[in-house]
Design a protein around this nucleic acid. Structure first.
Lengths: 200, 200, 200, 200
DNA sequence: AATGAATGAGGTTTCATTCAT
DNA sequence: GATGAATGAAACCTCATTCAT
């Protein structure tokens, strides 16, 4: 057995636990999920979890970190196909909502459960979230430089407002079993609102 | 002892507990606050709390309910001074942020602690929050009827986007001890964004 | 208002509480009954109970004491109509069971609830119960002197065995909603057993 | 480590807790004993108790269940040495009392503490006690068939009367530190009483 | 005598984490 | 690396009782 296969197996087991955790947390909620529930779902022993994660919270944070890293990468690819910053913003909104729709379990854990965890938002600094929002901020700044966005727009405030709008709608959609509006329509509406609101 | 003084004393004690709870929850967080911490701060015995509230969660929910009821009333008064729905929306944003700024402790409990409580958002239906958001929705609908807001705006999506934007900024301001931007500037920026975004 | 009426009213309120307590304890069980439940049933304030009884346990003990005092008096009247100690024993059994049947609530409290109270049987010395059982013991001793009961019967053991037999059957009847045998038949059977068992 | 030693150790720890519990409950009473008292006596952590028992009540019920199962087995062996049902009844009485005398702590827990526990006698159906009493009933029925016991004896009533008599005496002996009569004499007296009372 | 608001002690159970095997 | 038995900290709430009015 060579090094590669060992570390590959290791990564596999880590992934195995992470995927089991997403399912368990989405179904029962983070708080109500016991570590042993995750262990059972991942088909490992309780103690094994602690070979890969520092704590129960660390599992949640890892889900967040890794999902966000992936999203940051993919959203950048998605917006590359446009050149106008405003079109890119629209693309961002569509991407975000499509992502929530396609990975409901992951989205539920990130949107709902993550916030119910007392460590998050307080002790943990969500750098990844910052990075994700920074993409929005960069687009706004580029728009300002290109003259398509009003000069008096504060990119720091605007990017957070944009993200807040997307986030609130996504949260609602996740919590409501049968939402009245699809996320696609919501994304379009929000994009339209902000594009009009931002442009010179 | 007449009826007035008795029920007044009773109301007083309830308020005494509620105010102590806001302080304790804002400082230590809801989860880390013990009922006896609230009792000590309110200068009553632990058991007394349960004469006025069903449970620890009930204290949190009562803070929410009563603060929201008050805000709903006051925001309606605040927007009455304007007649244009778009001006009223701007006033709403300013009112909301002014409120967060002036009652930081209460805002912190509502914005942060309430969401960390596992009962809330899941078992408890936040009717008051709905009512508060409904005011935004009503302004948008009125704006559409008056022709100052685009006909293709979906008020249900837009009101939630507007609230989400305000909420995200407020959350950030509360969690960041020394925020770069005052809430007043943020309110203006968001109002401007949405007014431009919504208008025909 | 003269002394008589005052103390009469006092006795009335005491009785009022005692009767309410029997009902409440029989229905909910002593342990699950709160003092305020008894107060509400007796239509007095919680504190009033403590003007008449030292503690919650004291209510239970008072029910016991007063019921037993009454039963001791009445059972003596009942057995007076017979002269043969063995007939008197039979009468005792019949009286005991008739009493359980006719005052099911009181019996339930005495038989079941009293024993579930941790003070009773341990700290409290049930003198009245002793007195009640002494009547059986006396009948047995008289029977021995009269020669109708075997000389080798130990009255102290026999009286407790007799009471234990009655008590166990009564307990079962009280706990079983629809008992297979009426208490009258049980009394006859036990009497027959002991009369035959005791006689020379 | 082989399977045997693992499950043996497991059984050992369970027994360790059970034996500690008997001692603690007998000394302090079930109600006054805290789970941590039992844990300390058994030299395990508080939480370990809950790996073997569902609740504090479950410990008590387990003591009862397992002791009764053992007694049922042993009393049947004990009465096998006789063939006459009346001799067997006598043997039963002697066995029962000998058992109480030899396992005073266990008997105290079963006789006294079990009844003071509010769950028992009310929610829990004591099947084992029924089985134990059934042995008496069976002996009586066999006696009737063999013609040594009166035809008009109701076995259901008689068996409970017999058990009640034994139980009441045992209870008294356990509660009275220096009882006047040994349990052996009491067993003989009760056996004599019932044998004479039952026989044709 | 009557009230009832206020008191405050007290204990079971869960479950994240550890560590000997 | 993997296991899973063992650990032990931690806090909500009830309700008998008191006492100022």
């Amino acid at each position: 057995m060579n090094d590669h296969s060992v570390s590959a197996r290791k990564r596999d087991k880590r992934r195995q636990i992470l995927e089991a955790a997403v399912g368990v947390f989405a179904k029962q909620g983070f708080h109500k999920s016991r570590v042993s529930d995750v262990a059972r779902a991942a088909e490992v022993a309780d103690g094994t979890i602690y070979l890969y994660f520092k704590s129960k919270d660390d599992i949640l944070i890892s889900i967040f970190e890794e999902t966000m890293a992936d999203m940051i990468e993919r959203v950048q690819l998605a917006i590359e196909s446009h050149s106008d910053p405003l079109d890119q913003l629209r693309e961002f909104a569509l991407f975000h909502m499509r992502n929530v729709e396609e990975h409901r379990d992951v989205a539920k854990v990130l949107q709902v459960e993550l916030r119910l965890s007392s460590t998050f938002m307080k002790e943990y600094k969500p750098t990844r979230l910052q990075q994700y929002m920074d993409i929005i901020g960069r687009l706004i700044s580029e728009g300002k430089e290109a003259g398509v966005i009003r000069a008096d727009v504060n990119p720091i405030i605007a990017r957070r407002a944009f993200f807040g709008a997307l986030d609130e709608i996504a949260m609602q959609w996740i919590l409501t079993p049968n939402a009245r509006y699809g996320l696609n329509e919501s994304a379009e509406q929000i994009a339209e609102l902000f594009v009009r609101g931002l442009q010179s």
